[in-house]
């Protein structure tokens, strides 16, 4: 969203004459003025993001001794990760579960984004606000709501039993991987719709008219024009959901149970009950690296496919 706006705004560039020495100095170069306006934010993000990341990387090479650290660098934590299958299994499961959630979200949200982009002509903003409203509200409480819905004696089970459709509660609803996937897909829907909506909205409608005039039916028209042109939105939606959900912690903690635990829960335990911070740092780094690797491969493959098609 921001990248979009950043490129479009390159045009206007005022250069009001400065008054005072500092003003003149600052206004001498546009880049310097821009950077000086941006610098407080950059500084905060540097201190709050880049520095902690650096320390996290350093710490992943330390060892926990009791309540202190042995700071002599070692790759023991990374070897540990390779040797104990539980780590790899949890990571694989997290990646799989968030892939499933991503696929579900994108598939279910695409028609909605399409609907708002092509079939809503008045009051578009109300639709956008309605769709994105839940996203701004408490993630914890939205996950809690799903616990109420899916619980052993929750909404679905008790409703089905009251109606006499089932005798005993369905146990697979809560504390399972599917519960986590459903909740993740629901919680991140707004995030998926926005980028897809923007790229659908940008499609030049005259292309669709041209396709119709040249004899394409609705299905062919969609497959040959709308879908390829909206792919950038689909790709960014996929990444925007896949990356944060892989490291999600609340949903698996509340709804996952032992079968639905994800790598985020393990990382939290290293900083909590297990009290092995360097291992937690190592797991965080490995998580980030695997997410980055998968995101890069995904982008590469989709780009490749897109080029082959067009």
């Amino acid at each position: 969203m921001s990248g979009e706006s950043a490129t479009s705004a390159n045009s206007g560039s005022p250069k009001p004459p400065g008054t005072g020495r500092l003003g003149r100095l600052l206004q001498r170069s546009e880049a310097a003025r821009g950077l000086s306006l941006l610098s407080p934010t950059l500084l905060i993000m540097f201190i709050g993001v880049a520095v902690p990341f650096g320390i996290l990387i350093v710490m992943s090479f330390w060892t926990q001794i009791g309540f202190g650290f042995d700071t002599s660098p070692t790759v023991a934590n990374y070897e540990n990760f390779g040797e104990r299958p539980i780590y790899g299994a949890l990571l694989k499961r997290s990646l799989w579960m968030s892939s499933a959630a991503t696929a579900a979200t994108v598939l279910l949200c695409y028609p909605m984004a399409y609907f708002v982009a092509f079939h809503i002509h008045r009051n578009k903003m109300i639709w956008i606000v309605l769709i994105t409203l839940p996203f701004w509200t408490s993630y914890l409480l939205r996950v809690f709501a799903w616990k109420v819905v899916l619980g052993y004696e929750g909404v679905i089970n008790s409703a089905l039993m009251t109606l006499g459709l089932i005798k005993a509660p369905l146990e697979f609803l809560l504390y399972s991987q599917s519960a986590v996937v459903i909740t993740l897909a629901h919680a991140w829907a707004a995030f998926a719709i926005l980028p897809m909506y923007v790229s659908l909205e940008k499609i030049d409608k005259s292309l669709l008219e041209a396709a119709t005039d040249l004899g394409d039916g609705p299905v062919r028209r969609f497959l040959r024009i709308t879908l390829p042109l909206s792919m950038p939105g689909v790709i960014s939606a996929s990444l925007l959901i896949f990356i944060p959900t892989t490291g999600d912690y609340i949903t698996p903690a509340l709804l996952g149970g032992p079968d639905g635990a994800m790598i985020g829960n393990l990382i939290q335990k290293q900083f909590g009950a297990i009290n092995n911070w360097p291992m937690g740092a190592t797991l965080s780094i490995i998580l980030m690296l695997s997410i980055a690797a998968i995101a890069l491969v995904f982008m590469f493959v989709t780009n490749f496919v897109r080029k082959r098609i067009s």
Binding site: P52, P244, G247, F271, M288
Partner: peptide, 15 residues
Amino acid sequence: LVVPGIIFGVALLVL
């Protein structure tokens, strides 16, 4: 906006 919150949380905690 994108990086899992847990990563930022533990990174800041460590710092």
